[in-house]
Nucleic acid binder design. Structure first.
Lengths: 148, 148
DNA sequence: CTTGAACCTGTAGCCACTACAGATCCTATC
DNA sequence: GATAGGATCTGTAGTGGCTACAGGTTCAAG
């Protein structure tokens, strides 16, 4: 069985089933269809969506990529690479490497926030300063006498 | 001079000046006014906003708090505490402590993403696997033969 | 009095969903 | 075949925290 057969769309699963199988909200699934991330599935006579195995795999891919913080645009690119089996690895690595840089930047930013806040909260807990250290920190160092 | 005199709104600065002094976009300043985070300033005869020292301090406060990742709602709460000088420290500490927890959760989440991705990118770079390790990771372990 | 920068209001867009409202369909039971 | 109620349908609007216009008015310098 080819796990990457994204073209297999033989209609089987209604949307609620797909939702349960992937852990993805029904609304989100419809949203992914609307923005073209998930191809429109077959419909029952009454108009209900019926998904195939390809949809299941594709949505699983999207969910996993989201868990790793990829944006929907990045995921779109990765899906294209997954379909084009010729030269995906180098390009996929590029997408991932760029994303990794983003993540590391975010971690660094959050760690900077964390250290300032942790320090401030400790000083608040001390109760050794007359003013609230947190509020003092936030009032910061704008000099109101400087001319703009 | 009391740095916390947020009530001083004697009209002096036009919005562009306030923007330059605080590093906050003009659009953002107007947005903060619209959502009630920054009080509406005086106006010139022609209708241009004229800000006072209190606005400068308040907006500085907001910007610093944003840099520490506080949400606008949290900042609203902190500003209320800053105005009410009686029992702010314990409550401000609570707001900050809750936010600190959020930040630490986010850091942990990002570090989890980082380690998976860093590992995968390295394996991509190896070129030792026939398939692309990144795409393999994203195709994950959904078992299509399991019944939903 | 003219120029052009600064400012005004209001609306729409961004991302990635989420939450309805109000209608229709599907399936199981009687 | 009727009925109940869960599942699904479409479409719209809201979230947070801005940002980007369009199309108009005002301000300050020369």
């Amino acid at each position: 069985m080819d796990r990457k057969n994204l073209q297999d769309t033989a209609p089987r699963l209604p949307i609620g089933m797909l939702s349960r199988r992937t852990g993805c909200n029904i609304e989100t699934i419809r949203y992914y269809e609307k923005i073209g991330l998930l191809p429109a599935p077959a419909r029952s006579d009454g108009g209900h969506r019926l998904y195939g195995h390809g949809h299941l795999m594709r949505l699983g891919f999207v969910r996993r990529a989201r868990e790793l913080g990829f944006t929907l645009d990045e995921i779109r690119a990765l899906l294209r690479l997954a379909e084009d089996r010729d030269r995906p690895c180098a390009e996929a690595r590029e997408v991932a490497a760029a994303h990794l840089t983003d993540i590391r930047t975010k971690i660094a930013d959050l760690q900077a926030m964390e250290s300032v806040l942790a320090d401030t909260v400790v000083r608040c807990a001390d109760g050794k300063t007359p003013e609230c250290p947190l509020l003092e920190t936030l009032f910061g160092s704008i000099d109101p006498s400087a001319s703009g």
